[in-house]
Structure formats: C-alpha cells, structure tokens
C-alpha cells in the first residue's frame, strides 16, 4: 500500500472507532454536565447494551432474519431497554445521593458498575460471545479506499445518531431544560422545571446512545465480552475531557479526534498497537495539564 492509501484507510478507521468513542463520551458528558457525576457505570451500560442487542437479535432472527432489518429493530429495542436500565440505576443509586458528599456518589457509581460487570461475567462465564449477523463482508473501493458496506453503514448511523442528539439538545424543550439545569439546578427548580424528570431523561438518552454504540461495536468487531466496556469507558472519558466535559458537541468532537489520534498514532514507528492504550492515556494526562477545560470549554470560575 502506498502512504496515501494507508492514510485514507487510517482516516476511515479512526473516524469509525472515534464515532463509537463519541457516542459513549456523550453519555459521560451529559451526566457530568447535569449532576456533576462521573458515571463509572456508563462503560458497563455500553457493555450491557451490546449483550441486550445480541440477545434480542437472537430472538428476532427466526422472524425477520439477522440482516440490516433485524439489526435495526434489535438496536432500537435495546436502546429503549438499556435507556430504562439507566433510568432505574439513576433512581436507585444516584438520586438519593444527590445531596450527599461527592465521594459517596462516586462510590455508589462504582458499586453499580461492579454489579453490572460481574452479572454479565457470571452469565457468560467470562467467554467471548460471537455477535453473529447475516451481513456480507464483501469489500469495494471508493477511490483508493477499501471498504465494506457494513463499515460504511455503521459510520453513517453513528453520525446520524449524533446529529439527532444535537437536534434534541438544541431544538426541544427537554434539551433546553437540560442545558438550563447544567447551568444552575436550584434556579431551575424555582422556575418550575421538574429537575428529577429531566435528570431521568438525560440518563435515558445517554444510556440509549451507549447501548447503540455497544451494538455497533458488536457488529463491527464480531464478538462481545464482559470486559469490552472497561477500556472504551476510559477512552470515552478521555474524549469527553478533550472536547470539554459537560459540552455535548465537545464529546462528539473529542471522540472523533481521539479515534483519529489512535489510528495515526499506532502508525508511528516504535509505538505500535500494543502501546495504543498507553498512548491514549498519556494524551489524557497532557490534556489535563495544558488544557483542562478541553477544546470547546471555557474557563469557569468557581462560585462560592
């Protein structure tokens, strides 16, 4: 392959993986923006989404097959299911802790994460499960870029979900309420906004997007396992920090950027793919030192 071809290929890979990161990062960023909680369970919600999709697809397979139609129906169903799971977690573990010391709510988040993770670990006996789909893997060329139908559809779907979310946040009353609560929760309550309802909706949307990312990753990689959330959770958080945590377009931008950085970073000699995750992390530290507010973030002065 020529350098140009490698460049194009890595560009596409980076965008695709980056869009998964972006979808997960949005959930971190939304929750952080609205209740200032670092939701450790989010990575496990992503993983649960992938498994929910796998199970639903298994049920649907005899009726509508496991090609695009089946995958889309499974995607929508598991987005709803996992969204509700997110709301339930919020209700049980986070809502009673909103007024508690910050350390306590971080620890309940950790506990929820452990419960989800270990439940799936027990159910799957720690094995990799094949994510079987009826999709073809024939490749074709766009210019010098080799690609498959699956990968193209996944990228478009991920970008479409991001666009829909952006419209939801900027054009609807709920989105407006979310942004208002992120600015000042107490005042919102005085203005008659049902704060708890909006927080529940935020968790629903964030969890549903993470589930979508989980299923897409399942389709893309062909396997799912209980451990899949851990690293992507870390990376999605990095993406959220890069873009400016609490800022939703920032999370999308951060995800895509991180995907590209990884794709090109592993092409640098001496770094290689076994150091890919270390590379991401070093990047997180650098960002925290030099630009802790992220690319799109503003300097915030803390009010007393």
């Amino acid at each position: 392959m020529t350098t140009w071809e490698i460049f194009l290929q890595q560009l596409f890979n980076g965008l695709l993986v980056g869009s998964f990161y972006g979808l997960v990062a949005i959930g971190y960023s939304m929750v952080y923006g609205i209740i200032k909680l670092l939701n450790f369970a989010h990575a496990d919600i992503y993983m649960s989404g992938a498994f929910a999709g796998l199970i639903i697809l298994g049920f649907l397979n005899p009726y509508i097959g496991n090609q695009w139609l089946g995958i889309i129906v499974a995607l929508l169903l598991s987005m709803i299911l996992v969204g509700l799971l997110g709301v339930a977690i919020q209700r049980v573990a986070y809502r009673p802790m909103l007024k508690a010391p910050r350390l306590s709510i971080l620890i309940t988040a950790l506990a929820v994460s452990m419960i989800l993770y270990n439940t799936v670990l027990l159910m799957t006996q720690g094995q990799y499960k094949p994510f079987t789909t009826g999709l073809t893997h024939e490749s074709f060329y766009i210019g010098a870029l080799r690609m498959t139908e699956t990968r193209l559809v996944l990228l478009i779907a991920a970008l479409a979900l991001m666009l829909m979310l952006h419209l939801f946040i900027t054009r609807t009353m709920y989105g407006k309420a979310m942004r208002a609560i992120a600015l000042d929760r107490d005042t919102c309550q005085l203005m008659g906004i049902n704060v708890y309802k909006i927080i529940a909706i935020t968790f629903f949307v964030g969890s549903a997007l993470a589930a979508a990312a989980g299923i897409m990753a399942g389709v893309y990689y062909g396997t799912v396992h209980f451990f899949m959330g851990f690293l992507i959770g870390l990376k999605a958080f990095t993406a959220a920090v890069i873009g400016g945590i609490g800022i939703i377009p920032g999370a999308m931008l951060g995800g895509l950027l991180l995907g590209l950085l990884e794709a090109f970073g592993t092409q640098i000699p001496f770094i290689g793919s076994s150091w890919r995750d270390v590379f991401t992390f070093v990047f997180l530290i650098l960002f925290l030192i030099f630009k802790p507010n992220g690319l799109l973030g503003r300097m915030e002065s803390e009010r007393m």
Partner: peptide, 13 residues
C-alpha cells in the same frame, strides 16, 4: 463480588 458490590451500594445509601 456481586454480593460485595450490593453491600457497598446499600452501605453507601
């Protein structure tokens, strides 16, 4: 570990 995690959650609450 599940039991520990549930314990931790209940304790925190």
């Amino acid at each position: 570990l599940i039991i520990f995690a549930v314990l931790l959650l209940i304790l925190m609450l």
